[in-house]
Structures are given as structure tokens and as C-alpha cells.
């Protein structure tokens, strides 16, 4: 396991990721964006290791810059004019800042989704949605079963054709050969699907009241996590509703100042965003203590 948070019940994961992503979109105060970005990157690095740093510098950071540039060059609101552009429009401080904020939001959302992809596996997803839609859930499972099968069969067909002396030289001939191979795989897939359907029917598929089995159960730790997240979400939402965290960038940059309420909410927000990391640390400490005793 890359993270103890992966072991949590899917509902815990769903609430957490739903929370961070929605909050990231709603709380566009720089302090809160900073917290979310820092925590998402930290957790992504924990989950994916060093390659994540590469992703950040080669993809995410340029993306941030790109979004900022598009905004700065195409939007012309704002009162603080910096200079005049070649098309006669003016470059404003507000459009640059708002662009950067939006870019940060894009990066944050993508990073949290990267974490989501590591934590919420197919099984977890199926647990969350399978109960309501058992047939669609089964359909997704079948697709996930078939895909590696077909890719493997394509390899087999290509090999078989090569060994039968059917591979010819030249780019066009190669493409043609690949097309025939794909066509062979399609036939193979469709023909074999008949047997799969028979196997499903013979095991009672189509009876009324199909259920969807999953192996996840709520543990005390999960319940604690849910309770903690609900309290944190309530406090942060209250902070937002009562106006402690406001930020607007158009036409003038107006940010809520560092009031006690803002600092208070920000602390809660930070705790929420770093929750999986805290959870991991707690697990580590407990493990070390157990290990030290024996």
C-alpha cells in the first residue's frame, strides 16, 4: 500500500476527494489555494514518488503559466494598467493575477485527481456506484476484463501472422497487415462473446433483484474519519458562508484580510487537506510503537 488512506472505505475516499475538489473551486482566496496546492502536491508525491516532481515541472507548472498567459492576453478588465499590447488592448495586473489564480485552480484539480486515480481503484468505484446501478456496474467490470484480453489477442494475432510469413515490407503493407490483425481480433472478440453470454445466463444472470457484492466494510477508523471530515467541512463551509473568505479579482483585486476568523478557517482547511497525510503518519507511529514493543 502506498498510503494507509488507500485502505479506508471507499465512502471515506469519496467524501474526502469530493470535499477538496469542491472547496478548491469555491475558495479562490490565495491562502486557501496555496494550502490546497501544497497538500495536493505533497500527497501526490507520497503516492507516486519522484516521477510526480517531474510531472509537476514538465506539465503542471507550464500549464499554470499557459493559463495565466491566455488570460492576460485575452482579458482586458481591471483598473491597474501595466502596458498596452500590440492590438491596442491593455495588459492589466488584475487579468494576470486572476489568470494565475485560475491556472492554480486547474493545477490543483488535476493534482487531486491524480491522487484520486491512485487511491480510488475500480473496485472502490464499483462499490460506490454498483449498488444503485448493478447492470452498468457489471458492464464496467466486463469492459475492464475484456480490455487486457483483447490487447493480448492482438499481440497473438500479430505474432501468428508474422510467423505465417504474412508480414510484408513497406509502410503501406504494414498498415494493411495491422488492419487485418485488428479485424481478426474484432471477429475473435465477438465470436467469443457468445460463450460469455451463455456462461452468464447459466449462472442466473437476468433474474430479478441482482445485487452487487463488494468486500468493503466500515471500520471504526473509517467512522472516525467520516466524523472528523464532517466537522471540518461544516466549519469551513460556515467560514465561507459567513463571509470570512472572500476574494474577487475583477475589476479590482479585493481579498479578505487576515482576520482571526480567516486564520481560524484556514487552519481547519489545512487540517482537512492534509488529512490523508496525517492519517498515514498516525499509522506509521502506531506501527513503529507496536514493532518496538515486540
Amino acid at each position: 500500500m502506498k498510503s494507509a488512506f488507500c485502505r479506508c472505505h471507499p465512502a471515506v475516499n469519496l467524501i474526502f476527494f469530493g470535499g477538496v475538489i469542491v472547496f478548491a473551486m469555491l475558495l479562490n482566496h490565495p491562502l486557501f489555494l496555496g494550502i490546497s496546492m501544497l497538500s495536493s502536491l505533497a500527497y501526490a508525491v507520497k503516492l507516486k514518488g519522484k516521477p510526480m516532481l517531474k510531472t509537476f515541472f514538465l506539465f503542471l507548472f507550464p500549464l499554470l503559466i499557459g493559463v495565466t498567459l491566455i488570460n492576460a492576453l485575452t482579458a482586458h478588465y481591471g483598473v491597474t494598467k501595466l502596458c498596452t499590447l500590440w492590438d491596442g488592448n491593455s495588459l492589466t495586473l488584475e487579468s494576470i493575477v486572476y489568470g494565475a489564480v485560475t491556472g492554480a485552480l486547474v493545477v490543483i484539480t488535476i493534482t487531486w485527481f491524480m491522487c484520486w486515480n491512485e487511491v480510488v481503484t475500480e473496485d472502490k468505484f464499483m462499490h460506490l456506484f454498483g449498488k444503485r446501478m448493478p447492470h452498468l456496474a457489471l458492464l464496467v467490470l466486463m469492459v475492464l476484463r475484456f480490455v487486457p484480453l483483447y490487447i493480448n489477442q492482438l499481440k497473438e494475432v500479430m505474432d501468428a501472422r508474422k510467423n505465417a510469413g504474412l508480414e510484408s515490407e513497406g509502410k503501406f503493407a504494414k498498415i494493411k497487415n495491422a488492419c487485418h490483425a485488428v479485424s481478426g481480433v474484432v471477429t475473435w472478440a465477438l465470436e467469443h462473446s457468445i460463450e460469455t453470454a451463455d456462461s452468464m445466463k447459466s449462472r442466473g444472470y437476468g433474474l430479478k433483484g441482482r445485487t452487487s457484492y463488494s468486500r468493503f466494510t466500515l471500520s471504526p477508523a473509517d467512522i472516525t474519519m467520516v466524523a472528523a471530515m464532517i466537522i471540518l467541512i461544516t466549519v469551513i463551509a460556515a467560514g465561507k458562508i459567513f463571509g470570512s473568505i472572500n476574494a474577487s479579482y475583477n475589476p479590482v483585486i479585493r481579498l479578505s484580510g487576515a482576520t482571526p476568523l480567516l486564520i481560524f478557517t484556514a487552519a481547519f482547511y489545512a487540517f482537512y487537506c492534509f488529512l490523508p497525510i496525517f492519517f498515514d503518519i498516525e499509522e506509521e507511529i502506531r506501527w513503529n510503537r507496536l514493532y518496538a514493543k515486540t
Partner: peptide, 19 residues
């Protein structure tokens, strides 16, 4: 409540698309 055959063909086509 799609039949087994409908479901399998649908899964098959989608899987081909994904692959």
C-alpha cells in the same frame, strides 16, 4: 434489465473501443 447477450456485445464493443 438488458439480456446477457445485449450486455456482452455492449461490453465487447466498449472494450474494443478502450483497447
Amino acid at each position: 434489465r438488458p439480456s446477457a447477450r445485449e450486455l456482452v456485445v455492449l461490453a465487447c464493443m466498449s472494450a474494443l473501443a478502450v483497447a
